[in-house]
Amino acid sequence: MLNEGEIRTFIQGAVHYFEVSARQPVAVGSPYLITDGPPSVHEYTGVIGISGKRKGAVCFTAPRSMLMVLLMRMNETDTSEDNMKDLIGEVANTISGNARRDFGRDFVISVPTVVASDNGKFTPPVGARPFIIPLNWRSHSAKLIVCLE
């Protein structure tokens, strides 16, 4: 089960990512839990599998429009489907990788798996209740889903 400090690590990771990569802060919405069924996701979802001392997944899910703007902020002109997937995976990877600062080396992160679908559902790999951290950036909404045993 996650504690407050641990979730804060992920929130900080997300905030830091936007601050550094897009030079525009992200507003964190009030976090909540998924109590029944799988969490809903946006068009693109980057999933990082977590193994080692903790097991589960960290996902970053965002709509296409947001990724588009994010790419532009990063001076990337190529907004192909491949680059969208690449970006969503990289964000998830960066936030998860940064979490090792607090979780340590036994927090083993996988290479990103990217799911692209219209308002699909994401099924967390473990039984823990997923924490949803809503992220509001400019006019867009994204979510960080942290699901760790």
Partner: peptide
């Protein structure tokens, strides 16, 4: 240039012969 922000990973990389460590995300 990696997102892995823990010190042990940095030490491992430097010990294996890397000369610098830059943590993602970066400006």
């Amino acid at each position: 240039v990696s997102a892995l922000a823990d010190k042990a990973t940095a030490v491992e990389a430097i010990a294996k012969g890397a000369n610098g460590f830059l943590c993602k995300p970066f400006t």
